[in-house]
Design a protein around this nucleic acid. Structure first.
Length: 866
DNA sequence: CTCTCCCT
C-alpha cells in the first residue's frame, strides 16, 4: 500500500512539486483525498524513520553485547535478517530521500535517512544507554510474550544447549590417513595428528513448556558448573582463596556470582579483561536474575557506571578495580572478589593478583577470593596463593581436528592462501578464519587470494574475503558478521583480535600460520618493540578452539608438529614482563607500596624495568630523591594517563593552555587510529590529513586542529567521512576529554585556553622532555639520553618536510622495521633548559648545527637515497 | 615509506 502511494507520488508524469499538483486540481473532493494521501505518506515516512532507528539500535546492541560473545544459531539468523532488512530499508529510504530532495529542493529538512554505516555504533548522542538496554530487554520480553512465536529465544538457547550436550563427547575419529583431493596444482601437505577434545558432558533435560522464567532457570541448570554447585560453595566456604579452572562454556562467569548471592555471601565483584565482556555478562546475568541492569546486577567500565547502591553483583574491567584501590585500598565493600580470565595475564590482572593476595591476608575471613582461569597457568596461580586448592569444572565445546604441515613452509602467507583454496575445494561447508599478524599482511593476503580465485573458474562457490583488525572502520568490521550466502564460503583474515576479543559466527576451519605481533620492552634502552614472533602453544590452542564454537571443526597449522612441540614456548610471556611499567609503578606508589622490588608479583618484572620507571618518575618530579610520592605525583596518579601526559596536564596551567593539552592527551590516548587511509583513496586521505598540520607545530598540534575542527562541525559524522577521520575513534577521544575535563578539578588545574602553539608545545615538552632527540649530519635523529639513532615514522606530518627540524620530541619510540618515533613535534633547545634544567646540561643542548652541519642543514639530500 | 591487542 505504501509502495503504491509512493509509486503514484513519484511516477513518470509527476515532475511538478506537490503544491503545484494540489493547486492544479479542480475537484475539491479530489483535493481532500489527495491531501489525506499526502498526510498519510508523511506519517508513514516519519514512522518508517522511527522504525529504522529502532532496528538500527537493536542491531547495534546485539552486535555490541552478543556478537562479541557467543551467539546461538537462531540469534545469528535473527541478526542477519535484521541487518538485511535494515540495509534494504536504508537503501530504499536513501533512494526516496534523494528523489525528494531533487523534487523539493532544500526545504524538506526531513533528514529522511541516516548514513548506512551509522548503524554500527557511530552515534553522536550519548544518552542512549538506557534506550539500548530497553531495546535489548524488550527483545526478550517481546518474544516471550508473543504467542505466535513458535519458539522463544530462551527455548532456542536451551535446545541448542541440549543438542550440544548430546552431540558432544570426545569422539575419537579416524583421521590418521585421510588425505585430500587437490584441485590446485600446488598444495600444502598436512598430517592429521590430534584432536582438541570436546567436552565429555552429557546432560539431558526434560523439555517442558512452562513459563519463561522457569525456562531460564532450567537453562542455568544445564550448564556444566551447575552439577558442582554444592561442592563449589563448600570449597569457597572452606578456603579463602580458590582457583576455579573452567574452560569456555562451563558457565562459571555467569553462574558463580549468582550462587554466591543465593548463598548470601555479600557483595561480589567480578573482573573482566575487556569492556564488552563486562557489559554483556552483566546484561545476561541481570536477565537471568530478572532484575533491571544497573540495580542488583551492574557493571562498571570507563565512561559507563551502571551500578547503584542496590548492586550486589558488579562486573567490571580489571583496570577499573585497580583504580578503585585508590579510593578504597582494602576494597571493604566487596565480600567476594572474582578475577576472571586470569590466564590471559593482562597487566592489570597481574597487578590485581598481587594486591588481592595482600588484602586476603589483611582482611582475613572477611573476604573470599576466586581466581578463574583456563587450564594453563592454574598450578602457578595456586602456588602463588599459598597452594590454594584448584576446583575443576569441565567446559563444553566441540572437538577440533588438528592438522600439521608435513614440512615447514617458507612463505607462510602464500601457504595460507593455498590452504584456504584447498579447504574451499575439498572441505564441506563452513567458514574459514585465518590468523595473520597485521593489517599489512591481511591486505597482501586479500590481493593474493583475489588473484588466485580469479584464475580458478566458476566450478567452485564464491569465496567472500573479509578482513578484521582493530583499526578497521567499524562499518567494515561489521561485514564479518554478515551471514554467508548458500553455496559461498567466507574467509575471515584476522589479527589476533579474533583470538579473544571477537567471536565470529560460522567458523569451522582455522588456519594458523603460528605467528603474531608482540609488544616488547627493553628496559636498558627504554625502547619498545613490536615484532613478529611465533605464537605459544597456549596461543595455538586458543586459536584452534575458535574452530569448535558452532560445530566440530578443523585447525590447519602451517608448522610441523615437531616445531609445535620443540620450538614453541609453552605460554605467552605475560604482559608485565614486556611492557613499560612507569604508569603502574606510579599507581602502586600512590597505593602506598614503597618497596616495589619486593612487591609480590606473580612474575616479577625485570628489576631494570622497575628502576627505569622509578628514575623516570623522579625526573618528572612525581617521586622525591628518597623515592617517596610527591604531591605532584599524587595529582598525576589521579589521571588515567601515562605519567608523562599526566605531567603535561598538571604543568599546562603554567602556560594557560590546559584545554589544549587535555585535548591533545585525549587524542594521543586513542592509538594512532584517528586517520583512515584506504588504499584506493590514499592521495585524498593524505591531503585531508595534511590540512590539519598546515599551521606547523608537528603531529600534536595537528591532532589538536583535527579535534577542534571536528568539534566546530558539531561533532559531525559527515565531517569525519569527508576528512578521512574515524568517527568511532573521535568519539572515544571526546569521551576521554570529557573525563579529563572532570578530573581537572580534582587535580586542581584551572581550565584555560591558549591557542599559541609555542605555549602548547612547551607544555607538552614539560612532560616529554625525557624523549628529545637531535638531527644528525646523516639526516637521522639521535636521542639525547641513551643515545641511539631513531627515525620519524612515515605517518608523521614532519616525515616529508623539506627542512627537517633540528630538535624533536617524540611521543613514543617503537621498534618495528626501524626505531620509529610516532607522533613528533619540533622544539627549541632553549625550551629544554627552561623546562628541565635538572635533567639536561647546557652542554647537551648546544646548538652545534652552524658549526658542524653542512650547508643544506637539515635537508634530506643525500641522507636518504631513494 | 608504516602502526598486534587490550585497559584506566
Amino acid at each position: 500500500m505504501r509502495d503504491d502511494a509512493r509509486k503514484k507520488d513519484f511516477g513518470r508524469e509527476e515532475e511538478r512539486t506537490r503544491n503545484d499538483e494540489i493547486a492544479g486540481l479542480t475537484d475539491e473532493r479530489d483535493t481532500v483525498d489527495k491531501l489525506r494521501v499526502l498526510s498519510r505518506q508523511e506519517y508513514l515516512k516519519k514512522r518508517e524513520t522511527q522504525k529504522l532507528e529502532l532496528l538500527r539500535d537493536e542491531i547495534e546492541m546485539q552486535q555490541r553485547l552478543l556478537h562479541l560473545q557467543d551467539l546461538t544459531l537462531e540469534e545469528q539468523r535473527e541478526l542477519a535478517h535484521k541487518q538485511e532488512l535494515y540495509r534494504l530499508a536504508t537503501q530504499r529510504a536513501k533512494l526516496i530521500g534523494d528523489r525528494e530532495l531533487e523534487d523539493e529542493g532544500d526545504e524538506s529538512g526531513l533528514a529522511p535517512y541516516r548514513l548506512p554505516e551509522a548503524y554500527v555504533d557511530e552515534r553522536t548522542n550519548k544518552s542512549d544507554k538506557e534506550k539500548r538496554f530497553a531495546v535489548l530487554t524488550a527483545r526478550y520480553k517481546d518474544q516471550i510474550a508473543s504467542k505466535n512465536n513458535a519458539k522463544t529465544e530462551q527455548q532456542t538457547w536451551e535446545e541448542h544447549q541440549i543438542l550440544s550436550a548430546g552431540r558432544l563427547g570426545a569422539e575419537i575419529r579416524d583421521i590418521g590417513d585421510k588425505h585430500y583431493d587437490l584441485v590446485m596444482n600446488e598444495s600444502v601437505d598436512f598430517l592429521a595428528q590430534e584432536i582438541l577434545a570436546g567436552s565429555d558432558q552429557d546432560i539431558h533435560l526434560e523439555r517442558t513448556e512452562f513459563d519463561p522464567r522457569q525456562q531460564i532457570q532450567e537453562q542455568r541448570k544445564s550448564l556444566p558448573v551447575f552439577r558442582y554447585r554444592k561442592e563449589l560453595i563448600q570449597a569457597i566456604r572452606d578456603h579463602q582463596v580458590l582457583i576455579v579452572v573452567g574452560e569456555t562454556g562451563s558457565g562459571k562467569t555467569t553462574q558463580i556470582p549468582q550462587y554466591l548471592v543465593e548463598e548470601k555471601f555479600g557483595r561480589v565483584c567480578c573482573t573482566q579483561p575487556r569492556r564488552v565482556a563486562a557489559m554483556s555478562v552483566a546484561a545476561r546475568v541481570a536477565d537471568e536474575m530478572n532484575v533491571k541492569l544497573g540495580d542488583e546486577v551492574g557493571y562498571s567500565i570507563r565512561f559507563e557506571d551502571a551500578t547503584s547502591a542496590k548492586t550486589i553483583i558488579k562486573y567490571m574491567t580489571d583496570g577499573m578495580l585497580l583504580r578503585e584501590f585508590l579510593s578504597e585500598p582494602d576494597l571493604a565493600q566487596y565480600s567476594v572478589i572474582i578475577i576472571d580470565e586470569a590466564h590471559e595475564r593482562s597487566l592489570s590482572t597481574d597487578i590485581l593478583m598481587g594486591l588481592v593476595k595482600d588484602i586476603a591476608r589483611f582482611r582475613g575471613d572477611d573476604v573470599r577470593v576466586i581466581l578463574s582461569s583456563a587450564t594453563m597457568n592454574a598450578e602457578k596461580f595456586s602456588a602463588f596463593f599459598d597452594d590454594a586448592p584448584l576446583f575443576r569444572i569441565p567446559g563444553r565445546r566441540f572437538p577440533v581436528d588438528i592438522l600439521y604441515a608435513k614440512s615447514p613452509e617458507a612463505d607462510y602467507l602464500d601457504a595460507c592462501c593455498v590452504t584456504v583454496l584447498q579447504i574451499h575445494a575439498t572441505q564441506p561447508q563452513g567458514d574459514i578464519l585465518v590468523f595473520l599478524t597485521g593489517q599489512d599482511e591481511i591486505e597482501l593476503a586479500m590481493e593474493n587470494l583475489a588473484q588466485r580465485t580469479r584464475g580458478l573458474g566458476s566450478q567452485l562457490g564464491e569465496l567472500i574475503i573479509s578482513p578484521i583488525y582493530a583499526t578497521l572502520p567499524s562499518d567494515q568490521q561489521a561485514k564479518i558478521f554478515e551471514p554467508t550466502p548458500p553455496g559461498a564460503r567466507k574467509v575471515v583474515l584476522a589479527t589476533n583480535i579474533a583470538e579473544t576479543s571477537v567471536t565470529i559466527p560460522g567458523i569451522v576451519y582455522v588456519i594458523d600460520p603460528g605467528f603474531c605481533k608482540q609488544k616488547g620492552f627493553n628496559p636498558k634502552t627504554g625502547v619498545e618493540s613490536l615484532v613478529v614472533v611465533p605464537v605459544s602453544r597456549a596461543g595455538a590452542i586458543q586459536r584452534a578452539g575458535r574452530a569448535g564454537r558452532m560445530q566440530a571443526g578443523k585447525c590447519f597449522r602451517l608448522y610441523t608438529k615437531w616445531s609445535y612441540l620443540h620450538e614453541m614456548e609453552e605460554n605467552t610471556v605475560p604482559e608485565i614482563l614486556r611492557t613499560n611499567l612507569t604508569q603502574t609503578v606510579l599507581l602502586l606508589k600512590s597505593l602506598g607500596i614503597d618497596d616495589l622490588i619486593h612487591f609480590d608479583f606473580i612474575d616479577p618484572p625485570p628489576t631494570e624495568t622497575l628502576i627505569r620507571s622509578l628514575e623516570q618518575l623522579y625526573a618528572l618530579g612525581a617521586l622525591n630523591d628518597r623515592g617517596e610520592l610527591t604531591k605532584l605525583g599524587r595529582r598525576m596518579a589521579e589521571l588515567p594517563l601515562d605519567p608523562m601526559m599526566a605531567k603535561c596536564i598538571v604543568q599546562s596551567e603554567k602556560y594557560d593552555c590546559s584545554e589544549q593539552i587535555s585535548t591533545i592527551c585525549a587524542m594521543l590516548s586513542v592509538n594512532n587510529s584517528v586517520f583512515y587511509r584506504p588504499k584506493d583513496k590514499a592521495v585524498m586521505a593524505d591531503a585531508a590529513r595534511a590540512a590539519f598540520s598546515r599551521g606547523g607545530g608537528g603531529d600534536h598540534i595537528a591532532l589538536l586542529n583535527c579535534y577542534n575542527a571536528w568539534r566546530d562541525s558539531n561533532f559531525s559524522t559527515q565531517w569525519c567521512y569527508e576528512n578521512f577521520v574515524q568517527f568511532r575513534v573521535m568519539r572515544r577521544a571526546r569521551d576521554i576529554l570529557e573525563q579529563l575535563d572532570h578530573l581537572l578539578d580534582r587535580v586542581e588545574v584551572e581550565r584555560k585556553s591558549n591557542p599559541d602553539i609555542i605555549a602548547i608545545r612547551k607544555a607538552m615538552a614539560s612532560g616529554f622532555f625525557y624523549q628529545a632527540c637531535k638531527l644528525q649530519k646523516s639526516g637521522y635523529y639521535r636521542t639525547l639520553k641513551n643515545p641511539h639513532t631513531v627515525h620519524i615514522h612515515p605517518s608523521s606530518s614532519l616525515y616529508k618536510s623539506e627542512r627537517l627540524p633540528k630538535w624533536l620530541i617524540y611521543h613514543e619510540l617503537v621498534f618495528t622495521t626501524k626505531e620509529f618515533m610516532r607522533q613528533v613535534f619540533d622544539i627549541e633547545p632553549s625550551w629544554l633548559m627552561e623546562i628541565a634544567p635538572h635533567y639536561y646540561t647546557s652542554k647537551e643542548l648546544i646548538d652545534t648545527s652552524h658549526r658542524k652541519m653542512p650547508k643544506q642543514l637539515g635537508r634530506l639530500e643525500g641522507a636518504k637515497v631513494k
